[in-house]
Design a protein around this nucleic acid. Structure first.
Lengths: 247, 247
DNA sequence: TTGACTTATATGTCTAGACATATAATCGTG
DNA sequence: CACGATTATATGTCTAGACATATAAGTCAA
């Protein structure tokens, strides 16, 4: 067959490398449905013969497919096409300046309020901590082409990030500052919808009762809470878009 | 140093395999911030000496880190820690039954309307196709513990998925049917917020004017449109939650 | 029939080499 | 000094082996 007769040597005539071609061949068969979920793909030794290459080369292709969750490998049993990934979506939420400039719009930032205080009970609940330490509470607004884009309410746990006490949040948005100063290990996003209350409506320059998209993001470093942030976006004009390839 | 003195043999005393340990060591240094973005990690030959293993073993660890976008590899220059992934979030949106049963609630499904027709101008715009073919338009509702969970408005392009003409959408939700019968290659999600109109409010058993989370999902197989679906969730009770590890 | 033991086998990991290739760094030259 | 050619080097890919290990499948005894 044609694939076997094309010599499988590095610089023979094929542009991509061999293991990539093997991976792509298999990927294609899976995505077109030729090999449906549950189908057992050829054993490594069969692919070795098919592509006239060593087992390591085949193994590299299959390992990457396994890492991408397209196939499942089971010892002694073989490699199997996995069930489609249940429409799992990858939604990228970049930091605000990147998000806005990526849209080709000019970024603006206004600090509305910034205060340092001993954590109240509400603060502790929001951060998920039990001890009363110092926190910074920030309210600010991000705009695109001078139109309000989102309001941000943020708490930063100073016992995790003491350096934040010296940051100038009038100049730099807290999200950007944290991104560049604090490595995070875990985060949680919650997306919901609300109608604008008085304060939010004023900040976003929309009507009270207008729909808002709300994103709550909690960030941890190791087991320590770093920050909790709530973003309100005008719901009818703002959209979160995620385009992705699936399997 | 301790890592070098522990013998680096497969079944010596270490539980995980060597390349995984190398990968984890590097990952840890990156996530703790010990190796900040831009930092050049040791060359392969240095890691070979450090872990007393062959280059392929080191290479496997580094390749996986590169595949996971934690490092960037440049020929002749070395491997570098990448900038933090700008808080990119992974939001899993499973199919409705899985989503609801994962919450430990019982899944219910009602078909509200299902009709087959030649695509109207509005249908074509929504599907992003120019030719007038046949489509199926479906309205249905998903519920959790007999409480409305989401209303779904869906268009299926019959020229891409002719088999859909024979599916029984009164019995099986169209999302599940498509997931099991049509492999997809690309999708796009858009998340926004609206206030409930009369029809949506009735279907979800909420007040007119209450906030709703809206998810629009378009799915393609290769260059062909498969389906466009719009989901309305009650915004104040429903939340999309995504927890993830970051870098 | 069932449970315990054995065996065959496919994947998992690893080695010590090899050549290919992109490119940072150096060296020459105008 | 600017720019083109050369060189050194780190990664990219590949080979032909090896042993480890989980487990499907077959075997045998209670």
């Amino acid at each position: 067959m044609s694939l076997a007769s094309e010599r499988a040597k590095p610089g023979a005539s094929s542009k991509p490398t061999l293991y990539k071609r093997i991976r792509l061949d298999i990927e294609t068969r899976i995505l077109t449905g030729e090999w449906p979920p549950g189908h057992r793909i050829p054993f490594e030794h069969q692919l070795m013969a098919r592509y006239r290459c060593s087992r390591m080369t085949v193994n590299k292709a299959l390992s990457e497919l396994a890492q991408a969750d397209l196939i499942e490998r089971r010892r002694r049993a073989g490699s199997f096409v996995r069930r489609p990934q249940h429409l799992s979506a990858v939604l990228k939420i970049a930091d605000m300046r990147a998000e806005i400039t990526a849209l080709g719009r000019s970024y603006g930032y206004q600090l509305i309020d910034c205060r340092r205080r001993t954590a109240t009970a509400a603060d502790r609940a929001r951060l998920g901590v039990s001890m009363a330490g110092k926190v910074i509470a920030i309210t600010c607004r991000h705009s695109a082409d001078n139109v309000p884009f989102a309001v941000e309410d943020r708490l930063i746990d100073l016992s995790t990030v003491p350096e934040a006490a010296t940051a100038d949040f009038a100049r730099e948005p807290p999200g950007s500052w944290l991104l560049h100063h604090v490595p995070w290990t875990e985060a949680e996003h919650t997306i919901s919808a609300v109608v604008a209350d008085d304060r939010t409506a004023k900040a976003l320059d929309i009507a009270v009762g207008a729909p808002c998209l709300v994103i709550d993001r909690y960030t941890w470093r190791s087991a320590r809470t770093v920050t909790a942030v709530r973003l309100h976006y005008p719901g009818e004009t703002h959209r979160l878009v995620a385009r992705f390839k699936g399997g």
